[in-house]
Amino acid sequence: MNKVLITADHVIIGPADHVIDRGAVLVDSGMITAVGTAAVLDTALDARVARLHCPGATVMPGLIDCHVHLAFDAGPDPIRAVTDTAPGELAAAMAERAGQMLAAGVTTARDLGDLVALTVALRASIESGAVAGPRILAATTPLTSLGGHCAFLGGEVITDDDIRSQVARNAAAGANLIKVMASGGALTPGGPRMYESQFTPGQLRLIVDEAARHGLGVAAHAHGTDAISDCVAAGVRTLEHCSWRTADGITYDPKTTRQIIEKDIAVCRCVSGDWRLFLEQMGPERADAMAEVVREMREAGVRFIAGTDAGVPGARFDDYVGMLEFFSSLGFEHAEILDMATMNSAYALGLTDTGALAPGMRADLVVVDGNPLTELDALRRIRHVFRGP
């Protein structure tokens, strides 16, 4: 990426309520070297430096998707799409999906479960420039119980030694983090129900400890209220779904929420663009209960991060904004939502070089028509995407 000065009507620096009107961002070799008003930066720069003028547009940090599955195809049977596809074909399909995400403004994606570490190879291809896609953080093979959620990905563990071995294999394969299926899930026929725990509290602590021994954090798929509590006690870094399910419906635990906040654990609700259909299928009573729990967690001070669960049925790789609109429907302010999609997600993932626009940061940024602070749909009108090295 050569040196270029990008100017626009608005530059959202991060946090999202920090805005420079008629602003500019100077990018040099994939890094941000200056941020300020267009008048000052344009005057200070040599006339030979390239200019990218974007009237009617907003420049902001690149979007971060904290929960995707690039090996899944978003169709009605993602399991078959994985197990019945040759590795080479699956790798090519994953590269295409990564390109869709980048085109939608996603400059960083955390993949939370694939087959034989295919995301690690894809990550290398993207970093080399051979393939276009977002920066990838890969969990590789998720740990699950025997016959448990997503067991078809090969991460079944039973004993403590199994756990140690699988964490070690993932680390050796190049994983950026460890994923554990702490509860059941809807995707796996015959597996535990969504509210049922798949691991004991002691096993979850072992998983966290073993991951830490390899310098890795843990993301926990946890629908069940008991599983959420156990994961928080174990010290996971992020909670995925966190839907507070029990056999009787939704059972929210404010005490556990206080511990989530005290331990600085981020929550990724994993909402796909078809959330309206999902709420309709839940029924009004349960949908209202779920929405109220999210509002209570927000009021308590939980750090929410953005994730689409792209790849599962109905969760497309090119519809990031649909997930953000879910939070808007619950009363979240636009600035709050944009922070969730950028700087809050970067913080939760341990990334200090992205999520905001400042000198020394990676040039992960998007240019959109309009102003997403007043209209989230502006994020669908992508004009330019930049991704740092």
Rank of each mutant, 00 (worst) to 15 (best):
V106H: 05
T107I: 09
T107Q: 05
R110V: 00
R110H: 00
L115Y: 15
V116W: 08
V116Y: 09
V116T: 08
A117G: 08
A117C: 06
T119F: 01
V120M: 05
A121N: 14
A121I: 00
A124E: 15
A124K: 15
S125H: 12
E127K: 15
E127P: 00
G129Q: 13
A130E: 10
V131K: 09
A132L: 06
R135E: 09
I136P: 03
T141I: 03
T141D: 08
P142H: 06
P142V: 00
L143R: 04
T144R: 11
T144P: 10
T144V: 10
S145H: 03
S145P: 01
G147V: 04
G148L: 07
H149E: 13
A151D: 03
A151F: 08
L153D: 10
D162W: 11
I163C: 14
R164A: 13
Q166P: 02
V167F: 07
A171P: 03
A171C: 06
G174F: 06
A175W: 06
A175G: 01
A175N: 08
N176F: 02
M181S: 13
G185C: 09
A186P: 04
A186N: 11
L187F: 12
T188H: 12
T188M: 12
T188L: 05
T188K: 09
P189L: 10
G190T: 08
G191M: 03
G191L: 01
R193Y: 13
R193T: 08
E196Q: 15
E196R: 12
E196W: 02
E196P: 07
S197P: 12
S197N: 11
Q198P: 09
Q198R: 05
F199W: 04
T200E: 06
T200F: 02
P201A: 02
G202L: 05
G202V: 04
R205T: 09
R205S: 12
L206I: 00
R213M: 01
R213G: 14
H214G: 09
H214T: 03
L216Y: 13
L216A: 13
G217Q: 14
A220C: 05
H221T: 07
H221G: 05
A222Q: 07
H223A: 00
G224S: 04
D226W: 03
A227N: 04
A227D: 04
A227E: 02
S229P: 01
D230R: 15
D230A: 15
C231A: 10
A233G: 07
V236M: 11
T238D: 01
L239A: 02
E240M: 11
E240F: 09
H241W: 09
H241C: 02
H241N: 03
H241K: 08
H241T: 08
